[in-house]
Amino acid sequence: MSANQILSTQPNPTEGSKKMLIAMVGIGVICALLIVLSYEGTKERIEILKAEALEKAVFKVVPGISKTRIFELTAEGTFVLSDGKDRSKTLVYAGYDDSDAFKGIAIEASGQGYADILRILYGYDPEEQTVVGFYVLESKETPGLGDKIEKDEDFLSNFKALTVALTEDLSKIQNPVVPVKSGLKKNPWEVDGITGATISSRAIGNIIGESSAKMIPLIYSQKETFISAANPNSK
């Protein structure tokens, strides 16, 4: 048998590589398809659960309410009633008691934490001009450390009466909310940090500080919009 005959009986390495490549591409396509199908199949359910969690959180951050109405902030800077379905809009949640008295507003805000983006909800009482509640909607902070922002009672007490009073002309917050190191809080507009979770707790103070500086003057100037929307069916 000649050398040429021996070589012709051996497998073609190029042909083998092609088969392996086709197999890998096929597996990749199938995996991608399964991921897309799983996402599409659970997307609606996930959105429903998020909406339910958000609704429960609104009642936690605005004390004494029994019903809510959703408003969206328009490009013109005014608040109008909304169905809340368009999550790309800036939404706020007005809270009312059993007698339809307007009690306050729940405001969503977000910002960079230690591990990832923190998404929070805080309550605002226009009559007292204070933040009256706080809740973490989404967090990937380190368990046992960064997640203290959700559990530490001393830290949470910052948000029972955090001052966001406006200047006399109502154009801005008189003393913007700022975070301080643990144990150094001296003023009602400061957020006392957490030892061992400094970055996460400071992030919360900064998030509320930035959000409230923008949202509080707008909300306060349009109190009548929220008050009059308490029970539109009675008009």
Rank of each mutant, 00 (worst) to 15 (best):
S2G: 14
S8E: 14
Q10M: 15
P11Y: 07
N12W: 09
G16E: 11
S17E: 11
M20W: 12
I27L: 15
G28Y: 07
A32H: 00
L34N: 03
V36R: 13
E44L: 07
R45W: 02
I48T: 10
K50W: 06
E52H: 07
L54K: 12
K56D: 09
V58M: 08
K67Q: 15
E72C: 05
E72Y: 12
E72G: 07
T74L: 12
E76K: 14
G77I: 08
G77C: 10
F79Y: 14
F79G: 03
D83V: 04
G84C: 05
D86Q: 11
S88N: 14
K89P: 03
A106P: 04
I107Q: 04
Q112N: 09
Y114P: 00
Y114H: 10
I117H: 01
L118D: 01
I120G: 01
L121I: 07
Y124D: 02
D125A: 07
E128N: 11
T130M: 11
V132C: 15
G133Q: 04
K140A: 14
E141L: 10
T142F: 14
G144V: 11
L145V: 08
D154N: 15
D154K: 15
L156M: 11
A161W: 02
A161V: 02
V164N: 01
V164S: 02
E168L: 13
S171T: 15
P179Y: 10
K185F: 10
K186M: 14
I194D: 10
T195R: 11
A197M: 11
S201I: 08
A203C: 09
I204S: 00
S211L: 05
K214P: 00
L218I: 07
K223C: 01
E224G: 00
E224A: 12
T225W: 01
N233D: 12
K235Y: 13
K235M: 09
